[in-house]
Each structure stands twice: as C-alpha cells, then as structure tokens.
Design a binder for these strands. Sequence first.
DNA 1: AGCACGCCGACT
DNA 2: GTCGGCGTGCTC
Length: 745
Amino acid sequence: MTVGVHPLAGFDKLLHYKVPESLRAQIAIGSLVRIPIMNRLLLGIVAEFSEPVDFPVSRLKPLADVVYPFPALPPDLLSLARWMSSYYAAKHDSIIETMLPAAVRNAANIKQEKLLSIARVIPADELAALMKRAPAQSKLYQFLAQQFKPQKKSLVIGRLGATAAVVAALVKRGLVLEENRRVERIAYTDDWSTGEVVASQPHNLNPGQQTAVDTIAATLAENKFVVTLLHGVTGSGKTEVYLRAMHDALAVGGGVIFLVPEVALTPQTVSRLRGRLEAIAPGHKCMVWHSHLSEGERLDGWLSLATGESKIVVGARSAIFAPVQNLKLIIVDEEHEPAYKQDETPRYHGRDVAVMRAKLNNALCLLGSATPSLESYSNAQAGKYRLIGLPERVDARKLPHIDIVDMRVEIVRQRGFTSLSRKLVDAMHARFEKREQTILFLNRRGYSPSMQCTKCGHVEECPHCSITMTYHRSDEKLRCHLCGQEAVAPARCPACGAPEIRWKGMGTQRVEEAVRRVLPKARLERMDTDTMSKKNRFREILSDFRAGKIDILIGTQMIAKGLDFPNVTLVGLIDADISMHIPDFRANERTFQLLVQVAGRAGRGDRAGEVVVQTFTPQAEAIQFSRHADFEGFAASELKMRKDFRYPPYRHLIHHLFRGPSEEKLKFFTEQWARHVEKELAGRVELRGPSPSPIEKIKDEYRYQVWYFTNGVTRVIADLNALRTAFAWPDDITQVLDVDPVNLT
DNA sequence: AGCACGCCGACT
DNA sequence: GTCGGCGTGCTC
C-alpha cells in the first residue's frame, strides 16, 4: 500500500510513501504522519491512497509513524484546503499549516524524550579500567550511578559536557539503558468558565426573533447548504437566535462552529454564551478557540473536537478550521468585521471560508450583523444568501435622528465656503443652552488631499483605477497612487465646468476656529494626533468631557473608540464623505461602523439623539447610512436602484491583496490564477491599456495587488504588464465582468 | 524549508 | 592548489 502525502516542510509537492503493515489499520485520508525526507523526519498529511506517476515504487521510503489514530484533517478540511489554495493563491502546505494548530504539530514533534539510567552496577575494578580507557564514558556512568531515577539524555549531556557518541558507546557496552518516554502535559483547564454565572432560563422571544428562529430551524432541517444573512439591528437579540439554532443543530447530532471577532471574545461573552448553551443544550462542552490560548489548551481543545468528544467551538477567525465533526451549523457573528481577514499569508477571509466550509458540509452558514458587509448584503440581494431581518429592538430604544445636510446647497445658501452648516450650528446652540454636550467628528482616516467640486460634488478619479486622484501642491498635479497616472490639476470642474473646485479635507483646527466664531462661550477641546502628543492628555480630555467641563469635543477617529458619554445628545459629522474617496474599502467600512456607533450613542434615556451629517455627496451618505443605521427614508431598495455607484464604498471588493515585491510570488500568482482566470474570467476582464507609468514608480506594495470589484462594472487591477505576459491578453480588453468566487449561483 | 551540489573568487 | 560565497534543484 502506498500513500500520497503533503509534507509540512515548506514546499508544495505530493510525496509518496509505503505504508508498513503495522500502520495500515491506523492510516486514513487526512492522517497526520511522520515521514522521512532526506535524512530527517517531518510531518505530513495523507492526501490520497495512490502510487506515484514518475517515481519507481521500489524506491519509496516507508512512513515512519502515524501521529494520531484519527484523521487530523477530516475530508472536508482537506477539500477546503484545496479550495483555499486555489482561491487565495496560496501554497497548499501553508494552508494546511494554518489549519493545523502549531500546538498540534509541536505536540507531535516533542512526542518523546530520551531517558538514561545505568543498566547494571559494575564492579570497582571494571570501573577503574573504564576510567583509564574511556574517561568520558566513565564520568557519565558515574554520574548516572549517583542518580535515583532516570535522567533526561539532553540534560545529562549538557551537564557533563559529553556528546551523544559517549552515550552511544555506553549503550553499546550494555552499561547504560536508554529509554523513550512520552512527554506528559498538564490537562486543559480553561479560565473562561470562571467568569460570571449567567441567567440561564430561556428568554422569551419577540415575534421577530421567533420568526427568525423558525425560519432557521426549517433551513437546518433541509440538511443542505444555505447561507442565511441575519440582519438584526443593534439590540435585536441575535444571540438568542444563534443559541436556538445551535440547539437545533446539536439536537440532531451536528457540530457547530461559532465565529466571533477576536476582540469580542472576552471571558464574559464566553461564559454568558456557555451559561445559556448549557441551559438550552445540556451536556455539551463548548470549546474556546483563539490566539491567546496556551499550547496545551489548544491541543486539548483540538483533540476534544477531533475525537468528537466536543461538538461546539467558539472562537476567532482560525476556529473555522476546527476539526468539528458532522458540521451542521457555522455562525459568523458580526460578519462585517474586518478582523475576519487574515493579514498574513495565507490571506483568507474567515467569513468566506466559513461559507465555503458550510458548502462542503451541506451545512447552514448563518451570518449575523447589525451592519452587514457590502458583499454579504449584495449576495443577499442577489438571492444567493437568504435574508432574515430582525427590525425590532428588544429594549425598544430609539434610534438616533439623522439629518443629512447637502453642503453644496449650504455653500450656495451661505454664499461661500463654510465648514459648519446652519443646521449643525443651530443644533449646537440648542445643546449648549440645555447644558448638553456635542461631539464633532472629523473623519480623516486615510486622508489625502483630493479635488472636489463644491457645485456638483464631482471628484477626479484615475481613469485606469477609479481611485481618487491625490492632489500634489508642489507641482500642481493630480496623481493616482495606485498606477502613477498624472494629470494637471484642473482650474474648473471637469464635470460641470464650475470654477468652484476646492481641495477637500479641512483640519480640525479650522473646524475649531469656526466653532469658536459661532459659539464663543462654549468650552471646546480638540482631539487629534497633533494635540495628543502628550501621554495623559487623551485620558485627561475624556475625563473632563465626561465630567461636563467641556461642551464641545472636536476630534478624529480616536474620539469614537468605545466611549460612552451619557450627556452627549448631538453628533456632527463634518465632511463625512472624505473616507469615500480613499481606495481601501476596509477603511471605509470601519469608518462607517464608527460613525454609526457614535450616532447610536447620541441620546439620553428615552430621548433619541441627533446626528447631523455634512456631506457633498448626500446620496452616497444616505445609502451608506441606510445600510448601517436603518433609519427611515432611505430604504435598502435604494441600493438596488442605483446602478451607477460612483464611490469606492460601493465597490464590492471580493478579492484579496497580494503584497510584496517578490518575483516568486508573482510567478506563483500567475500560475495559480491562469487556470482560475481562464475558467471564470476569460474574455470578461476589463483592462484598459498598459500601465501608464514605469513599474518602478509604483510603490512596491502595490505592485502585485489584484482587486476585484463588482459594482456593476468589475475590473481587475494588477501589474498589467505581468498579467499581460502571463495570460497573453490583448492590449484592449474592455468587457464587463461579475465575479462570483464562492460559486453560489 | 533544509540541504546538497556546483561553479567562480581570495587565500593558508 | 583549497575554502567559501550563494544560485539551483531536490526531497518519495
């Protein structure tokens, strides 16, 4: 019998081995095995029972060992690995290494330690003779003779300055005994159970929850692959829905993976979940999985799942690779969270991998969010995912009132440029009189100066990359930071011809000045990287603000970080659309999450807060907010209506990034993607002309980026020359493409 | 990844 | 003449 094995050695090749008779009973597809490669032993995963095609069977080496008597990678994970390596263009063995926790691999490696003890007591004259002939051996022997119990070989050698040869000679003489012992480990006790004991009686479901629970139960009963997007507003009780779904899956003997963003994985969350789970599905031990576990904990958790002892795992991104058996349900909570993306190779998206793993298992993938990601929402709209809404809040809190102010109108009304709208100024006055507080939020993440027309809102974009051109004052030019395209900065708006084109992005100082003018008596404080140079300033300002010593707080991103100010009833978002013009859609997502958080907090007791959003692109803001905050007036259907999305946030970035200038990477990329591209994208790729600037001018980290956008018009942006060479594409491919990477049609 | 093989420069 | 640089290629 011969098997094909993927060595975990850093190279991507299937090697074949003979299976010794003694190991046949234990071996299966997915087994973790020890294999001889050159003159060392490495780990490998059995991929198939097969014979090599271009290698004589007679020269095959035998497998050294089977590490676990069960498959370390069950068939679904092996298929998933195959899919991931083609989808994410990563090496197969790097994927397998990601899937197998280091703890599991290490445990397999430290399997044994060698112990030394004396074999027999030798008479004094023999010892004297030995001393004369082999002093090193005699020294070692005498050392061992003094010990009460066997000593570690490594320790003995280290202590006496001996070598392995000395030990070998002694063993050969029959004076010393060498034995192997399995290294014992301390069993896994996780401290996640020590948290608070939580109410475990079943909650009463509201009608919305009940409907969701019923729908999901019915879906689970179908026993087929379905992705369901649970779109529940903040506080709508999604967790309870998850719990019922978990109960249903467990009840039929299924396994469950529950993914949460790393930050959400606190002892409180876990113990609360466990408490409820214990009540709802007694007798199931819930494993916790995240990056801060010790090796031992991880190994125990992994073993427990791999052997089928446990059926549930709660964890961060990498828990999607947990060896859960008979997987019936995968829950991805806060599916929009960027934390699901792995920022190192292999770069994968935990949510997408979850969808694929569900597909391979004919399982239900439940994506939950109050603010779904664009890609999931779009998939739901396209009918690929089922959509369940939870529109009611359990606690019936009021959503903030949101005003969107069109700054183009504002500028006309106020006869000139202004940073504060009438609406916002009035609202600030009102708060000040009531001794309530205001936060002015200036969105400057990823800020780079660009040009925007104050008449029509037009922003200059790169004709090749559809990314906002960056304004360089030094030579009065607009440049695309992706491909290097250059253009002279226009004096008039290229879209409407108006001369009122301006540099976007005003600083916090400017806003501060404006506020001082309209509210000279208010106490205000500015918080940004400039003023926060001193260490304690940050805390100082926040505590002053909380104590009511400050009326208006102006700041960037940093003020929105997990802070709760009960007396803040107004939030103003100045230049809310800055983030719309930066190329990274992740940054946009995050920004809008932040804005919604801020907005959600702007209230007091039962009174809804007020949020004023100032923008030059009101339609765009409205759609973003409708998606994120569910406020009236901008139904989700608007998203469907607008086919001509012009702004980066609507670009639905499906694919991942290739970073780094390595030629090897490019080579690999081209090889992997040649097949993929031919199959899926052939003839439907839009590439406009060769890269307009020499490749040297493009920042290294952008060189091999490949971006897929589906906003109705999708394109591949890459190192055009490389792609052209690799795929022999003609110079002027101009076609529309719609990528469906998970193949859910 | 490791590790060998191999083919060119500066030295006991 | 040898030691050693790291480019290339293989590992069943």
